[in-house]
Design a protein around this nucleic acid. Sequence first.
DNA 1: ATGAAAGCGCTAACAC
DNA 2: GTGTTAGCGCTTTCAT
Lengths: 335, 335
Amino acid sequence: MNPGGTTIKEIAKLLNISSTTVSRVLNDKAEKYRISEKTAKLVREKARQLNFLPNQIAQNLRLQRTNTIGLVIPDISNPFFANLARTVEIELRKQKKLILLCDTNDDTQLENETLALLMGRKVDGLLIAPVGLSNHHFQHYSHIPTVMIDRYFEDLTIPYVATDNLFGAYEATKYLVQSGHQHIACIQGLEDAISNKERIKGFRKAIDDFEIPQQKTSILGSDFSIENGYEATKAILKNETIPTAIFALNNQIAIGVMQALKEENLSIPEDISLIAFDEQPYFQLTSPPITTIRQPIEKIGQEAVKILFDIMNNKAPESKLLAPEFIKRESVKTL
Amino acid sequence: MNPGGTTIKEIAKLLNISSTTVSRVLNDKAEKYRISEKTAKLVREKARQLNFLPNQIAQNLRLQRTNTIGLVIPDISNPFFANLARTVEIELRKQKKLILLCDTNDDTQLENETLALLMGRKVDGLLIAPVGLSNHHFQHYSHIPTVMIDRYFEDLTIPYVATDNLFGAYEATKYLVQSGHQHIACIQGLEDAISNKERIKGFRKAIDDFEIPQQKTSILGSDFSIENGYEATKAILKNETIPTAIFALNNQIAIGVMQALKEENLSIPEDISLIAFDEQPYFQLTSPPITTIRQPIEKIGQEAVKILFDIMNNKAPESKLLAPEFIKRESVKTL
DNA sequence: ATGAAAGCGCTAACAC
DNA sequence: GTGTTAGCGCTTTCAT
């Protein structure tokens, strides 16, 4: 067999007909072009027999579309993004689109290169959770349908779908305060990512609304990793006064927090309370089960794909902020 | 700007030279073809100015390669595979390859379709964790460089890299037995997946070697999901005699087990012991911390990519079974 | 030192 | 009902 695969031309030759006819039959246009049932059948048979698969590369070049969507994500090993990827994959597959997966490791430079790569690949659309530090590199690519997920830019018109992070963080903080906490440390992720900024805003707003003295609270941390949660917690514990509660701004940070507390023999919530952004199955199994803010991951993925198709079909896309869900467990002590 | 992007032809026209020359310069072959420094400079300038990106589709068609690798995985939301995907992405990126990500949902039919899709896309290679129930569909694609990950087929010559599952399961079971357990329930994943079969073999071998009466042990379960772990555990608890220990054959099953035990107010390890295949950060944070068999995920990913490149470079590929690591924690009680 | 032309595999406009 | 031809954007052989 031809290593590159059977071609339309080969089938045509074997059947002594033109490749046009073959193409038409194989694209279910036999009827439209009133190709005889006999010819059509012959073509289909031969195609099956030779295990014919249309060369998508050639098709793509000709048709100027690739049925491929770029999915750009900061860290596929973060279960939030892994779950998102899964939903997106399922939705796109329904539309016969495949995903080019790119992991930017939350690095703007790499994101930049990635975008250029994907443009060269002529993806039909882009689903991206941008690093978020800068956005000027997106200007070049305004012609390609793009939806931002989880993170976005307020000064760009690119549609997005994300959790209502401000609201979620507000609710979490409110709960902490209403449970009697005033000394609260908030461990953040990437400082300039909008998801982070909004969560910080929500935290601050609650602190403000409930008139907690600013100096009793602190914000520290620098990225969405387990290590960051661990290091930040260690740092917190070095101070003279330690907070009564920690608010971890994502699931990985929360794991780091728990590791550090465990190492220091501090128990949750007796010694220190914990609340975390992002729900994961294991949070109900930790000791104690952790109170979390659940992001509607499936819905985010589905909406993102829907919006992407809206753009591709020239419908006016609409950005969405989806409500998170507060899941109360046992990691916050009432003072 | 041309929505399809600037082309070589456009640059050529603007500079009043041929597209051949432009192509040569842009592919760093100026010297080889002794193109004047002046022309070369002009081309490079214009290209930058117009934000030129070579159309990979056209390049791919012409060059008969796509710099794209298909990554086919049963479930990207399973952290084992998510972590694997990350490693693979990083390794492939070093070689300027991009990933087409496909999730088969552990469904042979879907895997089959996926493979056909990827062949049409003319991927340069395939990295696949096959469902494992059947393999005849792989025969069609023997011409394309393929490495199997995590799962493989013994009767196929396709190279693979996986954990030494038999050894890992043997060690786990041995530990259980040596801790005094005889009534052991093993909750398995997909029955016909080789990773599962090997783990079962290891389990059985240990049971045999240590002369535990067969009827004291049981094997149940049907896939690698949380739900399966949950349901199987519930089923186990309905019996007159319940086992003193459970061996969960992956991380998700283990979560399901813990959920079910918790619901039934049974505690680990007092009421029942647990040991799990797959290490995850949260296993040290659960109540109690879970004893696990760690798979060397990074190494698996790196080796798989290495082997794939070996095949593409006509070096003889070598399958690898990598040793897992036993991580002892507190979920197994000594009887 | 540069260009013309062919061709990768496919589809579609335009014949007849 | 079917075929001819052109062309998607690129690289490369062969000329000059």
